[in-house]
Every structure is written in C-alpha cells, then in structure tokens.
C-alpha cells in the first residue's frame, strides 16, 4: 500500500474503471473529485471503483460513491476488490450493497 493516493481511470468494453490507491482521506478525495465526477458523468456504460490498493477511506469518499450511485444507478455501479479493513468500513456504514 502507498500513502500517496492516486486515481487512474480507463475505459474498457464501455466500462469505466476507476482505480484508486493509497489513503483516500478528505484532501485526496477533494483532489480527485472534479476529474472523477466528470468521467462518471461522461460514462455510458458500467462504472467500477477498484479499491484493491486502498487502505483508508474518509467520509468524502462515501459521498463520491453515493453521488456516483445516484448518477448512474445501482445496476451500472459497482465497487470492486475491496480489502478487509475497507470492507469492514463499508459494512459498518451499511453501504456494502454497492460492493460486487
């Protein structure tokens, strides 16, 4: 795991896959918010947030997930490859239904 958060987005087979890494604290989320939401708005197919390399999420990341969920709909949005510490956080928050 790296402490420096990064976001990489790629479109494959019409799916937008946003791969996050590191510690997604409030500042990191704020730094990627505009770019992320613009890509989500432009997406025509499924949107996937890949959290394989994420070890911490802040409240703001929940908001990004909820915004994306609302924008593209439950059937087109998924969170994938969640590590146990972060899965626990989603479970406590009651947001684990977004995880596939």
């Amino acid at each position: 795991m790296t402490d420096k958060p990064t976001l990489t987005c790629a479109t494959t087979d019409e799916s937008l896959v946003c791969t996050f890494s590191g510690r997604l604290d409030t500042q990191a989320c704020a730094a990627v918010e505009a770019d992320l939401m613009a890509r989500v708005a432009a997406a025509t197919g499924p949107v996937v947030f890949d959290l394989a390399s994420v070890d911490y999420v802040a409240s703001m990341f929940f908001r990004l997930c909820l915004q994306t969920h609302k924008q593209v709909g439950a059937e087109r949005f998924a969170i994938a490859h969640v590590q146990p510490p972060v899965l626990r956080v989603f479970k406590i928050a009651g947001l684990d239904t977004m995880i596939r």
Binding site: Y56, V57, S59, F62, P85, V89, F90, I92, A93, L95
Partner: peptide, 9 residues
C-alpha cells in the same frame, strides 16, 4: 452511521 464507519479506522 457513516461517521461511525470512518471513525472505526
């Protein structure tokens, strides 16, 4: 509830 989840980390 979301605050509780973040707090747990």
């Amino acid at each position: 509830t979301r605050a509780a989840a973040i707090f747990a980390q």
